[in-house]
Each structure stands twice: as C-alpha cells, then as structure tokens.
C-alpha cells in the first residue's frame, strides 16, 4: 500500500501524458471524422474519392506501425523530425479519425431524405441544409459510437512508450523493471487508472447525448445514475420522426 501511495505522483505524471494524448488525439480525430465523413456524403465524385482514400488507408494500417512511421521513418525520408508527442497524436488521430469518418458518413446518410427535401423546398443551400438541418440530427446518432471510439483511442495511447514516451503504461512498466513492487500491483494501478478515465469519458459523452436528444425533442433519462448505464431503448435511436 505504501508503494501505491508513494508512487502515485509518478503514475499521475504518466497519466497526464495519457490524458493529453487522448484529448488532442480525439480532437484531431473528431475534426478529420467530421470533414472526411461529410465529404463522403457529397455527390461530387472527387470529394467522395478523397474521403474513401483517407478512410481506407488509415483504417487499414496498424496504429502501432503508423506510430513508428511518424516517429522514426518520416525523418529518414524527409529529414524532418516530428516532436515525439506530436507524432503520437498524429498517428492516433489519423487512425481513429478514419473510423469516425465512417460513423459521420453513415449517420448523415441515415437522416431521412425527407428532411433534405423539406430544406430544398425552403430553398436552402447545401451548406445551410447540412449545418442547420442534417448535421444536428445526425449528431445524436453519432455520439454513442463516438463514445466507443474515444475510449478506444484512450486505450490505444498505451502503445506510445514504444517510441519513447512515458505514459501511464510506461510508468507501470518502469516500476516493474526496477522491481520496487510486484508486477500484480504495478499493473493493477495502471488498470484502475485506465478504467477511471474511461468512466469519465463515458459520462461526458452521455451528457452530450442527453443534450442532443433534448434538442430533438426526444425523452431523456435525466437521473445521475443514467449517466453510467446505457440509455434505454427509444432514447437514442437516430433519425427524425
């Protein structure tokens, strides 16, 4: 127990990097997902091609190899060295963004065609229609899957020690290597840390889901406990009535 209490500051330092990578990685993934996912819904062939190439390339490569590539290989061909932490954010964001783009694309396509037709009848431009009518409705549908993806991203940050970053996993591993405590304890602390972060992320996404559903005039479970359990059937189903 003494070990746990004494080592917490070091764990926390590693955890801060894990959090930073999660926040910036998720921000990058989100922007990519929205932009590329929207391109994928356009009638313009070039836009769709760009979306497809990005999605297939970055969904199809291992995040770990992408990490090595940005961390090491890029320097060899361009002579330009990315800061290691930036390389990690880039690798994770590009990878998860590709999954997110598919979520955005399918959610936008799931908004009933009738909604688009109503906005054409009001003579809205593509941009206004997407921003005011289609995206806000698709948003409620994206959120549950975005919740999964951001947790996946958070857990994927555990690979960054392989390009020399000291995150939560690396701190635990260093404790094991220096044999200051048994392996059961050092990794258990890390496991609990990841679990707690995941819970925080889930609660944040559920809060966003509630807000989105309320805006669509759907019933929401407003209890505190409702933030920790999956919403009941009928509160998150997408599409307009």
């Amino acid at each position: 127990m003494d070990f746990v209490i004494n080592s917490l500051p070091l764990y926390w330092e590693g955890a801060l990097l894990t959090i930073r990578l999660t926040v910036f990685g998720a921000a990058l993934a989100f922007v990519l997902a929205v932009v590329v996912g929207t391109l994928g819904t356009m009638r313009n062939k070039a836009a769709r091609a760009v979306a497809m190439v990005y999605t297939e390339v970055f969904r199809g490569v291992a995040a770990l190899v992408l990490l090595f590539w940005f961390g090491n290989s890029l320097q060899e061909i361009t002579g330009f060295r990315l800061e290691t932490e930036f390389a990690a954010i880039l690798a994770l964001g590009l990878n998860v963004g590709a999954y997110g783009a598919e979520v955005v694309r399918s959610s936008i396509n799931a908004v009933p065609r009738a909604q688009t037709e109503a906005s054409i009848a009001l003579n809205m431009t593509w941009w206004r229609r997407t921003r005011l009518v289609v995206f806000p409705q698709a948003w409620a549908q994206m959120l549950p899957t975005f919740g999964n993806l951001v947790i996946e991203l958070m857990k994927a940050t555990a690979i960054v020690s392989l390009i020399g970053l000291t995150d939560l996993t690396k701190v635990a591993d260093d404790f094991r290597a220096s044999a200051v405590a048994d392996t059961f304890t050092v990794y258990s602390v890390a496991l609990v840390g990841y679990f707690l972060f995941a819970q925080v992320l889930i609660v944040l996404v559920r809060l966003l889901e509630r807000r989105a559903n309320r805006k669509l005039g759907r019933p929401t479970d407003d209890s505190l406990l409702g933030l920790l359990r999956p919403p009941s059937i009928g509160t998150t189903t997408g599409g307009a009535r």
Partner: peptide
C-alpha cells in the same frame, strides 16, 4: 424561390422549435 411545398409526412425539422421551423427558410434563403 417562388414555389413552396407541404408534404404528406409534414417533414418538420425535429431539431428546431416551431418558431425556428417557420423562420429558418425566410432568414437563410
């Protein structure tokens, strides 16, 4: 611009209040 349509299934925008539904077209288009 000169043509308006009312649909069988109403097709109101569920993400907007009644007021917004009625004002978004004139304001934006």
């Amino acid at each position: 611009k000169t043509i308006g349509m009312v649909f069988q299934q109403f097709n109101l925008f569920p993400n907007m209040t009644v007021r917004k539904n009625v004002t978004e077209g004139p304001v934006h288009s």
